[in-house]
Write a protein that binds this DNA or RNA. Structure first.
Lengths: 223, 223
DNA sequence: TCGCTTTCCAAACGATCGTTCGAATGCCCG
DNA sequence: CGGGCATTCGAACGATCGTTTGGAAAGCGA
């Protein structure tokens, strides 16, 4: 795998250190989009390079392997998502003199991925890629998911100070349940919900969905 | 694909109509186990037939294709799980004169998959296969997940009669959130939780976890 | 036992995949 | 201008995969 600094696949983020990395950026953008739409295993290196308009060997030359490419996109996007969440948590902390209420802590967890999933958001594909990679990723990706929990620590601690009467064990479990609610927001699950409700739940914007999720999770935490 | 009646892969369920389908049963059992452990894409037809001790062509002869084999196992196991859930709902309905409380309705949804996941349960591998197939399955599997919601209807209706003041739309959404909690109980997610809590949540038996989930979801529904 | 159907078997087919290689090309700096 | 290096390119390699095929074996009713 390459150890050189890497280019962001989205055009809205500028290059970092490279003078010219158009090929790399094209590969990253095409790969993220194809992976998000078709799934990791159903996209070949040939599909990516054809979509990006570059040579077949570019993936292995710039990233080392297909898995390394997936890992690189995943690492960048999850770091970006964690930054959004952490920023919201910090803002809530600042607003409440260091002790934000449960609802705002959970909102900091839920709102970024929900906003990213909005069709009008440029991060929509990135969000879909993250969801794909979480379940279809290689061993390396899954290992990161399993072991890297540093970005969740501030949320767990904030919840424990907001709920001092609740045993820490219980806080962790309820955080786990809340993350489950968030991770369940895939297209297939929405389709199933819409089929179940006969279209009753179809016209729901992000704000309404966020409010619903917050109502549910907040009540669960305060139980 | 074969249209003949099919054999159950688990030895605890008797054959249905076949006189002799040892090969088929061996394939189903081996396939389910390997799929559950390694994932659908990381198990080849050769792995399955070698594990089952049968010829390579057996899968295509008895099931038509690898995808059809996956679909068959998925169909059988999800039907079995739905039966368990529906039975629990019926029992709760009978106990409460046709109007079971929210907690028991949710329990009927949560308890069967949780009990199946218990290491002491013979259905543990089956449960792990279902989880795998839900996210890694073919288009046919995903289509069933998206469109077949008949088994959820009784639960939605029971919840609406138990919560007459809540708009049906809200009931559907909260049912969606509850299903998300259930579907999040994968090994990787548990590992992440344990890593986050420094082992504080490791020693939790099924009954304790069920109580926690019920507390959380019930409060969410009654919010 | 005969004839027929079902099942099993070894072997190969055709396709796709990730990866590698050597040469060619472009680019920057001295 | 020219040497050196990074990049690109076409082409192929090696491996794995799901599937197919034709014949052998086995089960079974008549």
């Amino acid at each position: 795998m390459s150890t050189r600094p890497l280019q962001d696949p989205a055009p809205d983020l500028p290059p970092e250190t490279e003078r010219d990395a158009a090929t790399k950026a094209a590969v990253l953008a095409a790969a993220e989009r194809l992976f998000a739409v078709r799934g990791l295993r159903c996209v070949s290196v040939r599909d990516i390079t054809a979509e990006a308009g570059v040579n077949l060997a570019s993936v292995n030359y710039h990233f080392g392997s297909k898995d390394a490419l997936v890992f690189e996109i995943f690492r960048r996007r999850t770091a970006e998502l964690s930054r959004d969440r952490t920023r919201m948590l910090h803002e809530a902390t600042a607003r409440h003199d260091g002790k934000p209420p449960v609802r705002e802590i959970i909102a900091a967890l839920m709102e970024p991925p929900l906003r990213w999933s909005n069709p009008a958001n440029v991060r929509r594909i990135a969000m879909q890629f993250i969801i794909r990679a979480r379940s279809e990723g290689s061993d390396a990706v899954r290992e990161v998911i399993r072991t890297d929990v540093s970005h969740l620590r501030p949320f767990a601690e904030a919840l424990m100070t907001a709920l001092p009467h609740l045993p820490p064990e219980e806080v962790y479990w309820r955080l786990h349940f809340t993350l489950g609610m968030i991770h369940n927001n895939r297209f297939a699950e929405f389709d199933r919900l819409h089929a179940l409700s006969d279209g009753l739940t179809r016209d729901s914007d992000v704000d309404a969905l966020l409010k619903r999720m917050l109502d549910f999770a907040e009540a669960g935490f305060l139980a």
